[in-house]
Design a protein around this nucleic acid. Structure first.
Lengths: 141, 141
DNA sequence: AGGAATACTTAGCTGAAGTAATGACTTAGG
DNA sequence: CCTAAGTCATTACTTCAGCTAAGTATTCCT
């Protein structure tokens, strides 16, 4: 039994995403900006990446990624070095400090959402569990 | 069969929301800003509201809502008038032009998402159909 | 070798949120 | 009843996170 008529799902989903995103930003209390945190996570999962790869992964223009990386480098959480095969590239890697900070922040950062999720029924959580990769796919497609 | 360990769902859901939101913003081609459109929708559904009510509904600080309303008023899509019982309040109502614009824009605005949704399998759409109100609830809780 | 293409950076803009302070009005206490 | 405190909206300014345009360094192609 669908909650929404077919042509209304998009509108409702959109509104929900927008509101929830703002809420997530509001409820987050962390020293790291959201893009910074995301990049740190990427480097943790994928290992070192060029600025271009990071920009593509986050679907952001290169200058935006440069700024984020500059910020992270200033705080000593990532290291920049010139690419070996192609010296135009800049390879970014996470530092030990970066990993420490990531671990510390990841918990705090998702804490609010995790608490909210804990309040849901198992069924509801199961729905979101299935929905997460689909949403991810929509963003990436 | 959960895709994610319990304590990872929050992190993944968060990332998915952030990316999808950015994508929605990018792919949207409309004359109305996102907050403006949302407010117009609220006024359409709920009838006239004070600036404070609108701000609370969107979980935005009053100044942000003032700005959005100012913009909408400039375009003749909403009307401001002084509150009758409490003259500090400002009551905002949607105009006929506003309704027209809302109808025209709603389609265009959700078009990209609607197309993406159409590419999903029926099962995936069903999941999102159930997920939408849950996400909405998380944002509002 | 020289010109086109690529990878990142720099500089500056915009949109959409926020806080702090102000003005107008209302409510409550003495 | 009148003053003090509180509330609603606004104004002014800041911050954040994206963008484009233009510049620099390097590589690729003929």
């Amino acid at each position: 039994m669908p909650e929404y008529a077919d042509d209304e799902l998009a509108a409702h989903l959109r509104a929900a995403i927008m509101r929830l995103r703002r809420r997530l930003v509001q409820e987050t209390d962390s020293e790291l900006s959201i893009p910074a945190m995301t990049v740190l996570g990427l480097l943790h999962r994928r290992g070192e990446q060029t600025v271009g790869q990071l920009a593509a992964a986050e679907r952001v223009q290169p200058p935006s990624m440069t700024r984020t990386v500059t910020c992270l480098e200033r705080d000593g959480l990532v290291a920049r070095r010139q690419g070996e095969s192609d010296r135009r590239q800049v390879v970014v890697s996470i530092t030990e400090d970066g990993r420490t900070r990531l671990a510390a922040d990841r918990d705090r950062r998702t804490e609010w959402l995790a608490r909210r999720l804990a309040d849901l029924t198992p069924d509801e959580r199961a729905v979101l569990d299935e929905a997460a990769p689909i949403l991810e796919g929509l963003a990436t497609a």
